[in-house]
Amino acid sequence: MSMVSEFKEFALKGNVMDLAVGVIIGGAFATITTSLVEDVIMPIIAFIAGGEINFKNMFLILGDAPDGVARTYDALKAAGVPVLAYGSFITVLINFLILAFIIFMMVRMVNRLRRADEVVEQIAGPSEEVQLLREISAKLGNINK
């Protein structure tokens, strides 16, 4: 088997394709979550706090800043000044918590659907195919004795 055909077999397996789709959707979902945090939640927090709060500009300067450099996060980073950006970390943390909560809710919903399917299967009993397989197995068991 050539390397190209092996790669084609690997790349076209269901699990690999499912993973690729999951990664693409996850990337898009992360963008939505980032927008939710930065454009909706953080402004609400700033409003509740009583003024405009720019979490990106919440930082501590850990080194000496050269003269003439503005005291903004972007300007300090561009100048190579070490900056402890705790505001950005807060934003990322909130983003993660929202994303984790949404994933938790999705997993919870899938688990409920699975349990519901199991209950239906228990109430309905085994499918017709399963019953036929049991009969065949029983007859083969009698023949082998």
Rank of each mutant, 00 (worst) to 15 (best):
T33Q: 05
I94A: 08
I53V: 15
F47V: 14
I123K: 00
N111Y: 05
N111D: 06
V130G: 06
I48L: 04
A30P: 02
V83H: 00
D18H: 13
I45S: 05
V37I: 15
V120S: 04
M3F: 15
M109L: 14
V21R: 11
V92E: 03
L97G: 07
L62M: 13
A85V: 07
V83Y: 10
D74W: 12
T33Y: 12
L93Q: 06
A28S: 09
V40E: 00
V69S: 05
N144E: 07
I123C: 01
L76T: 04
V16P: 01
S137A: 13
G125D: 12
L140H: 09
G80L: 07
K13H: 09
A65M: 03
A20W: 15
N95C: 12
F55S: 00
M109K: 14
V110P: 02
S88M: 06
S2C: 06
L60S: 12
E6H: 14
K145E: 15
I102N: 02
A46W: 05
N95Y: 08
I41A: 07
V4Q: 11
A49K: 01
M58I: 11
D39R: 03
I24E: 05
S2F: 11
L113H: 02
L133D: 08
V107T: 07
I136C: 11
V120Q: 04
F59A: 02
E128Q: 09
I53L: 02
I48G: 02
A116Q: 08
A116G: 09
I48C: 00
L36Y: 10
L60R: 01
E9H: 08
G27N: 09
P82K: 01
V21C: 12
D64G: 06
I103R: 03
Q122C: 10
G80P: 03
G63Y: 03
N144H: 14
I94H: 08
V81P: 00
I44E: 03
L62C: 08
R114V: 05
L19R: 14
V40Y: 15
I103D: 03
V110H: 02
F104Y: 14
F96T: 14
I25W: 12
E121K: 01
L113W: 11
A100T: 11
M3G: 07
N57Y: 08
F10P: 00
L60Q: 09
A46L: 01
L99P: 04
M1N: 04
G87W: 07
D67R: 07
L140G: 12
T31M: 08
V21F: 14
A75W: 15
N57H: 12
A20L: 14
F29T: 10
L97C: 09
F7P: 01
L62E: 04
G27C: 09
